[in-house]
């Protein structure tokens, strides 16, 4: 057992946990903004897939990882634009459109992959990491946490930026009001549809970025259904976090550790079905809910389209 808990192993485990957590973090932060503004964004899985596919295509053909992240975010925004148009502007049912978008993007990205890459399965080269001096010299956690790609640090910084936006800015207040009492926001002279559209498009950008990270940094290639429920995990994280970005970070890390443990167990050749380990984070959260389950503090107008003057 000493081999299993060696410094190198633990460090690799932690590194994998961070890599697995970042897409969940981005999806969770995005979903959180939508939900704050009153839009239950079930299409986030589709947005992540669009981001993963376009992010991979962008990075593969341009050779630049950053351009890949940009196209990935663009892909997420494109899907979010459809969502914003149908669910925010004309008020169609968010669950119908969300699930339809997820199904459609699952199919579309798999289809495009089939015609483009299914013969060659091209891979991207390993990513460059940004080494933070001094901190990266700490044993175990140093190589895991401080030798990551620059975007990992940016994603973590985003958590605090989001916290600042929600607590200290006009936009944060507007978002909150759009989710809790849209009519009041309207009376205050601020366009509810516009506020919610901003939220949904931001969600798309973050989800697309998360998908691009998953394909380009996490896997190095695109395969159909690569997100494998990460978007739905993002929804769970956003709801558990009760509007606090920091809790999304903690939740994402918890799920990240378990996902990383799954891979590590396989590598170590331990004979437990990976499904058992995949159940761990959900079991942990369910136990927490059973023990401390309190009333959910979801926005009052979540899932209800806003129609001006309707009663």
């Amino acid at each position: 057992m000493t081999g299993l808990f060696s410094e190198v192993f633990l460090s690799a485990l932690l590194f994998g946990a961070v890599t697995a957590a970042i897409p969940l973090l981005l999806a969770g932060l995005g979903e959180q903004m939508s939900e704050k503004a009153g839009v239950l964004n079930i299409g986030i899985e589709g947005m992540m897939l669009a981001g993963a596919y376009l992010g991979f295509v962008g990075a593969f053909y341009s050779g630049s990882l950053w351009l890949g992240f940009l196209t990935g975010a663009g892909g997420g925004i494109a899907v979010a634009l459809v969502m914003a148009l149908l669910c925010v502007r004309i008020g169609l049912n968010q669950i119908v459109i969300g699930i339809a978008l997820t199904l459609g993007l699952e199919g579309l990205t798999a289809l495009l992959h089939h015609f483009q890459f299914s013969r060659s399965y091209p891979r991207l080269p390993a990513v460059d990491v940004t080494v933070i001096p001094l901190l990266s010299a700490i044993p175990v956690i140093g190589p895991a946490l401080f030798r990551q790609h620059l975007i990992v640090y940016l994603a973590v910084a985003l958590v605090f930026a989001m916290g600042y936006i929600y607590r200290r800015t006009q936009l944060g207040l507007n978002l909150q009001a759009a989710g809790d009492k849209p009519a009041a926001l309207d009376v205050a002279g601020i366009d509810v549809v516009r506020t919610r559209t901003i939220a949904v498009l931001t969600t798309g950008a973050l989800a697309g970025l998360g998908g691009a990270f998953l394909a380009n940094v996490g896997a190095g290639l695109f395969i159909p259904f690569i997100t494998n429920g990460a978007g739905f995990l993002g929804i769970v994280l956003a709801m558990l976090a009760r509007g606090r970005p920091v809790w999304v970070l903690f939740g994402a890390l918890l799920f990240g550790v378990c996902l990383s443990l799954t891979t590590a167990m396989q590598v170590a050749g331990i004979n437990i079905p990976t499904d058992v380990i995949q159940m761990l984070p959900f079991l942990a959260v369910m136990v927490m809910l059973v023990l401390f389950g309190r009333r959910a503090s979801l926005p009052a107008a979540l899932g209800i389209p806003y129609e001006r003057g309707a009663r």
């Binding site: 699930i99 339809a100 459609g104 199919g107 289809l111």
Partner: peptide, 9 residues
Amino acid sequence: LVLVSIVLI
């Protein structure tokens, strides 16, 4: 999947 999705929308 694409077809079903478009029909739904």
